[in-house]
C-alpha cells in the first residue's frame, strides 16, 4: 500500500484463498498445515504476480477510483466464487496440536498462537532486512519515495510493482496455513482481517514494517482491553474509531517517520 500507492481491497480474499488452500491440502492429502506453508507460499506468490500483471498494472497511472473498484470487484468475485465452489459452511481442520499449550509458571500460552507470533516477528525482520540490504529491496524503497526518479535511475518499476505485490500475497501464503489450526475458514473471512490490516498499516505509518508490527500489537492490546471493559462486540468499533482518528490527526502514523504524509 505504501509502496505502490495502491489499496488492495482484495487482500483479505487472498488470505481466504490461502486458508482454503491449506484446508484442502490437509483434507485431501493430509498435509500438515505447518508443512503446507511450503506449497502455499509459491502458490500465493504466483497468484500475486498474475493479479498484478492483468488487473493492477492496467490501473496504474489512471484515476484513483479505478484501482479501488477493480480490487473491490475482485474481492466480490473471489468471495462469491468461494461461496459457489466451497459453500458458506465454516470449515476447520482437526489437528492434535491446535489446543496444545506451553506453560511458563502461571502463564499458559497456546502453542499455535506462539508459533504465529514467532513466525510473524521473523518474517517482519526478514522483510526489514530485504528492504534495507538487497538491491530489489532498495529499488522498492526508491520507487515508493519517488516513482519518476526511480525510473530515471534505471529501475524497472513495473518489475518492482510486480515483486512488491507478489511478496504481499506470498506473506498471506504464510499466514493462511499458520492460522488454519486455530481459525475457521469461510468465504467472507478475509474482510475481518483486511480492515485490521489497513488500520495497522496506517497507524504504523505507510511503508514502515516496524511501525506496522508495533501498531498491530497496540491494536491487539486495545482489542483485548476494550473487550474486557466494554461489550466484547464493541471492540471492533473502538479500533475503527481509532483508525479514523489516526488518519485525521496523525496521518503519518503513530510510529511513522515525520514528513511521510498520507
Amino acid at each position: 500500500m505504501g509502496v505502490m500507492d495502491i489499496t488492495n481491497f482484495a487482500h483479505g480474499e487472498y488470505l481466504m484463498l490461502s486458508l482454503y488452500a491449506s484446508f484442502w491440502l490437509f483434507e485431501f492429502f493430509h498435509i500438515d498445515p505447518y508443512l503446507s506453508v511450503l506449497l502455499v507460499i509459491p502458490l500465493m506468490f504466483l497468484l500475486g504476480l498474475l493479479t498484478e500483471k492483468f488487473l493492477i498494472r492496467p490501473t496504474i497511472g489512471k484515476p484513483m477510483f479505478i484501482h479501488i473498484f477493480v480490487t473491490l470487484g475482485l474481492s466480490v468475485i473471489l468471495q462469491n466464487l468461494a461461496l459457489l465452489l466451497w459453500s458458506g459452511n465454516f470449515r476447520t481442520i482437526q489437528v492434535p496440536f491446535a489446543t496444545h499449550t506451553i506453560n511458563f509458571g502461571d502463564i499458559s500460552i497456546s502453542t499455535p498462537r506462539l508459533i504465529i507470533f514467532m513466525v510473524t516477528l521473523t518474517v517482519a525482520y526478514l522483510i526489514h532486512l530485504f528492504l534495507n540490504y538487497t538491491w530489489m529491496g532498495k529499488a522498492i524503497r526508491a520507487t515508493s519515495q519517488n516513482r519518476n526518479s526511480a525510473q530515471l535511475m534505471g529501475i524497472n518499476i513495473n518489475r518492482v510493482f510486480m515483486v512488491t505485490f507478489a511478496l504481499g500475497t506470498a506473506c498471506l501464503g504464510i499466514a493462511g496455513p499458520l492460522l488454519m489450526p486455530i481459525y475457521y475458514v469461510y468465504p467472507t473471512i478475509g474482510f475481518q482481517f483486511v480492515l485490521v490490516a489497513f488500520v495497522a498499516v496506517v497507524m504504523g505509518g505507510l511503508g514502515s514494517v516496524k511501525g506496522a508490527v508495533l501498531a498491530s500489537m497496540l491494536i491487539g492490546i486495545i482489542e483485548t482491553l476494550s473487550g474486557y471493559f466494554l461489550d466484547p462486540a464493541m471492540k471492533q468499533a473502538i479500533y475503527f474509531l481509532l483508525f479514523i482518528l489516526v488518519l485525521i490527526f496523525k496521518p503519518s502514523g503513530i510510529f511513522g517517520e515525520e514528513g511521510k504524509v498520507v
Partner: peptide, 16 residues
C-alpha cells in the same frame, strides 16, 4: 453468489 460474481466481472471489465 453467481449474480455477485457477474457484478464483479462487469465492474472490472467496464473499469478497464
Amino acid at each position: 453468489g453467481l449474480h455477485l460474481i457477474i457484478y464483479g466481472v462487469i465492474l472490472i471489465v467496464v473499469l478497464l
